[in-house]
Each structure stands twice: as structure tokens, then as C-alpha cells.
Nucleic acid binder design. Structure first.
Lengths: 303, 303
DNA sequence: GACAATTAGTTGACTCAGTCAATTATAACA
DNA sequence: TGTTATAATTGACTGAGTCAACTAATTGTC
């Protein structure tokens, strides 16, 4: 239990830090973009196959407001809209060259501001402050984030495809061939999805999707683990293991004898989760069509 | 120099913490008060002899906006305005009973929210996070606050009186007799103020007054140190010593042989500054008319 | 296969915090 | 005594964000 003095200290911290955040914010505002606009642009840049609806869910923004913002971005040449071939209600949003330039500019401003603030500290202080921040962040997230794991809904399909691709793209530089492959397997999976044999769980952090895992029936005894993914900020906090536990429980309940998964060599963090759950590598295949030197691995677990 | 990864960590911290601040803010907003209104009410409650102008300066708020806010507070019975006897442009603002109740309610909401967030941590984590916050706060303030020490202007008179009284009141529970005494001595001091023999410096933090110190001539050889004051958040950061250095330099330059000051026994922090600058206690008088058991002390320094 | 219910996105009308500029009333200055 | 500065108010406005109604396409169901 905190004393009144300690709470006063925290209020003091809040005041100082709020001030600092305001400084960064006002630097952004000088560019002519709203903070919300900045967030939206950033989210678009982070999202493959982005739609207005994904943005609305991910950022908790009013639909009408979003619609107008997107219209404005289009008018200013920051984004391009393309109609979906499969569902003509949906318009995909993609950053243009100019859009990328602008979001980079905004990110630079933010980074430079942070650098400027922290470079006034000497090296030891910089290090101490940084470590303290990481510690606080982890402790507070751990204690306050509302985490739920729920079955997938139709609206999650776009999320799973989009984020799966984005995260692999961003972190592993995979090619367009991989992208088409993901589209196909996700749509195939959802189409054939059967409650009794398959499973697709969505991890939500504070009401926003932040990870996924799936089990797909291959035959009576064999299941494939798929779409295992965690947003970067959710990693190293045990959620990977929790998702994996749920998926393997599902497999045990359904009587599968073997679970396998396909992954690429570079996915080091995920490998660790696989290993701790008893998976072992049984084969590897060259997949250079997905990117230079990419090797796909097959891991298996006997239940 | 920070690495890109470290900056990303800090961005992550900012995001998490901004979110947390937003939560607290939205709890305040639920009461029907704007965040700005909350700040203004708080500042009114902290300020003796409060005027709209003090609030404008202290909080950097537009005059018209402030005027309307104050009108609203008055209409809702949170404050009372009284015309100044000496300057009929000035209207003094004082919280009513209801106003105090409301500001306490707001403060409680904020404190409870903070408590709720931190009580989810275990004791060690609570302690670590608290210490880390205090450390970050100090380092960042140290590095980023813009501190200036400047001669006083007419507009500072109200500040010096108001804060001097408020801080003594709040921290030492002094009586109304003391209050009248401060009014008198400040007005006397300013009236008789002479650039060549007297000195009144204002410490500013980010453009906002945050402390003061003064030297008043008593006779050719003797000066009195007065109005030595620091806002709580500015203490323990060396500003007391800096102000004291400036004041004593002034005394040396003007050829004073003796500097004395009057203080009350309870002012432990200030005593330390006095001692390190060579002052020693020469007498003490009973001042129970200022409050129960208050003892005034006279300290002197031979230059 | 038709009709109800959903979902993606748009449009209209509005709210309300905050700003800019002009005005009144008093005090200070020279 | 007229000019300048200051305290406070009033008027007219901006612009981020909200609420609700609407269109158009899709899905679910009997």
C-alpha cells in the first residue's frame, strides 16, 4: 500500500512526464497533422491489407471520423484506396510513396525529440533512465493490461492475414509469394473451419487483437498448428506459452496423436516456445521463393 | 547516444504510460470537469489571494478562457470573488466550502486511480517502480527544465505574497495573524524598494515563478534576508543554494557587514541551507500568535 | 430464393474545449 | 493630463471529435 507521500511523488512524475509528452506532441502538431491522424497513418503503415474497419477497431476511433480522415489522406495523396475483389463493401488502404515519406518524417520528429531530451543526460543517467523505463513499462503492463483469449470472429480474418503478413514482412523480409500464400491458407482455413476439429484463438490486449494461434485438422490423428503470432509489444511476457498451452490442450481433447507446425529458421523467439512445449525439428526445406536463404522447418510433437 | 532499439523502448514506455494517464484523465472527465478546469481549481486551492491573472500566468491559459471558466465556477458556487480594496481591477478568488469539497473529490479520484494501478503490483515491485519514477523525474527535470533567475517585476508581488503565505500555511499551519503580517511586509518592502540597496529575485522554472529570495537594507552595515521560498517540487535540487549564493553575493557587493534572517523553528529544510552558508542562530522568540508553539529564530552571518 | 439482419463505409448536424481580437474599466507613468 | 499598461470581460470563431441516420453490399435463415 502506498503512502500519501509516495502518491504525491507519482503525481509529480506524472506531471513532469505529461509535460514531456506534451512537448513531443506539440512538435507533431506543428507538422499540421493531428495526433490522431499521426496514429492512423502509423497504423496504416504497419498494416498490410489495411481497411478503415481495422483502423477503427485497432485505434478505437469513431467510424465517421475515420471516414473523413481517410478521405482527407486520399485528397492529400498520402494513401490510395482499392476495392476488394471478394467483398465490394471493403476498400483496401495503402500508403503512397508520399504517405511513406510523411510517416517517416513524423517518426523522425518524434525520435529526434526523444533523443534530444535524453541526450541532455550523461551516459550513466541515460542508461539508468532507460532501464528504469523498461522496468516500469513491464511491471505496469503486466499488472494493468486486460488480457483475453477468445475464439475468432469473422472480423478477425482480415486481422490475422494482415498482421501475419506484416509481422513476417517487417521482421523477416519475406517476398510477395509468401504474401499470396498467407491469403490463400487463411481463407482456406476459415472456409473449411469446423468447431469440432479446428480452433482459432485471438489474444486481445485491452480489447485490441494482439496475437493469434490456430489448430487445423489434417487427418484423424494429425493436426497442424498455424497462425501463431504475437504483436512485438506482447512478447517475452508469457503469452506465447499461454496460447500454445491452449492450442495443445485443444489437440489433446480432440484426440490428435501428432501436432506439427511449419516455421522458418529465422524465427528464433518462436523456436524457444516450440522447444519448451516438446516440439522437435524433423525436417527442413528450401523456400528461397519466399526470400533470400529462407528455410522452412517442420517441427513435430507426439502427444 | 541512444540506439534505435532503446528509442523504441522509450516509445513503448510512452505509449503505455500515456495510456495510463489517459485512464486517470477519463476518470476526471467523468465528473463533468475538464482537465483544464481541474487544474485551475487545484491552482486556486493552492493559492492564497488568488486572482485570474495569477492563474493565467501559472497555468499558461488564455485570458478569455480563464474568465469564462471562473464565471462558470462562480455560477456553480465553487468560488467567491471579492474586489480588492487597493486595486479595483483585481478580483480575488477564493474557493467556497463546496469548491473545497469538489477539489478534494477530484484529488481523491486521481489518488484512488493511482493507488488502484499500483496496488496491483506486489510490495517489491511497488517500491521499485516508485523509486524508478522518482529517479526518472529528477533526472529529466534536471536536464530539461529551463531555469531562470530574474529581478522581480510588479506582477510578482502578488505571487510572492500569495505563495509565501500558502506554503507557510500549508506546511506549517500558521495563523491569520501571520498572513496579515506577510501582506504588510511585502508591500512595505516593495514600496521602499531601492535598486542600490535592496534585491528581490524570482526563480522561474519553464517560465513559471517557482521561488524567490530578497535582501532588504536595515542600515548601512546590516541587511535582512527575506522571502526565501521554493515551490515543493523545486526543492532538493540545489536551487535554494543558488538563490542564497546570489543573495549573499549581492550583500558582499553592496558592502553589508551583517546579514540576518528570521525563520521559524519548524523550517528544517531551509535551516540546512542557512547552515551551509555560514549562518548561525543567535536568538529565538515565542510567536504563538502565529500558531501553536511557533518559535521564531534569528540567524546571522558576518560577511 | 426472398427477406431480415449484419457489416463497411459515408454524410449531415452538432458539441464543446480552446483561440483570437476587440472592448471596458481602472491604475500607473511621465 | 493625456498616454500607456494591466485586469478582466465579451464576441465571434475554429476545429477535433461525436451521434445518428443513411446507402450499399453481404450473410444468414426459413
Amino acid at each position: 500500500m502506498f503512502s500519501a507521500d509516495q502518491i504525491a511523488d507519482i503525481q509529480g512524475f506524472n506531471k513532469v512526464y505529461q509535460n514531456l509528452l506534451k512537448q513531443i506532441d506539440s512538435a507533431i502538431l506543428e507538422t499540421g497533422y493531428t495526433l490522431t491522424e499521426k496514429d492512423v497513418l502509423l497504423e496504416i503503415s504497419k498494416t498490410e491489407r489495411c481497411t478503415a474497419n481495422i483502423l477503427i477497431q485497432q485505434l478505437n476511433i469513431d467510424r465517421s471520423y475515420m471516414s473523413r480522415m481517410i478521405a482527407k489522406f486520399e485528397k492529400h495523396g498520402l494513401i490510395e484506396k482499392t476495392l476488394s475483389q471478394t467483398d465490394s463493401r471493403i476498400r483496401y488502404i495503402r500508403l503512397t510513396e508520399l504517405g511513406h515519406k510523411e510517416i517517416n518524417r513524423l517518426a523522425d520528429i518524434q525520435n529526434n525529440h526523444i533523443s534530444a531530451i535524453f541526450n541532455k543526460l550523461n551516459d550513466t543517467d541515460q542508461n539508468n533512465v532507460w532501464q528504469a523505463m523498461v522496468m516500469i513499462r513491464n511491471k505496469l503492463s503486466e499488472a494493468n493490461d486486460v488480457i483475453t483469449i477468445r475464439p475468432f470472429a469473422q472480423s478477425d480474418i482480415e486481422y490475422v492475414i494482415s498482421r501475419h503478413k506484416t509481422l513476417y514482412y517487417a521482421e523477416r523480409h519475406l517476398s510477395g509469394t509468401f504474401s499470396a500464400y498467407v491469403d490463400e491458407i487463411v481463407y482456406n482455413f476459415v472456409e473449411k473451419y469446423n468447431d469440432r476439429t479446428d480452433c482459432l484463438k485471438i489474444l486481445e490486449c485491452n480489447g485490441v487483437p494482439a496475437g493469434s494461434i490456430a489448430i487445423a485438422k489434417v487427418n484423424k490423428d494429425t493436426a497442424q498448428l498455424r497462425f501463431f503470432m504475437l504483436e512485438p509489444e506482447m512478447r517475452q511476457r508469457g503469452f506465447g506459452n499461454r496460447l500454445m498451452d491452449m492450442a495443445l490442450d485443444f489437440c489433446r481433447n480432440k484426440g490428435y496423436k501428432t501436432v506439427f507446425l511449419l516455421t522458418i529458421t529465422a524465427q528464433i523467439v518462436a523456436r524457444h516456445v516450440y522447444e519448451t512445449h516438446g516440439f522437435h525439428k524433423v525436417a527442413s526445406y528450401d523456400k528461397s521463393e519466399w526470400g533470400n536463404g529462407v528455410i522452412e522447418e517442420r517441427w513435430e510433437l507426439e502427444i
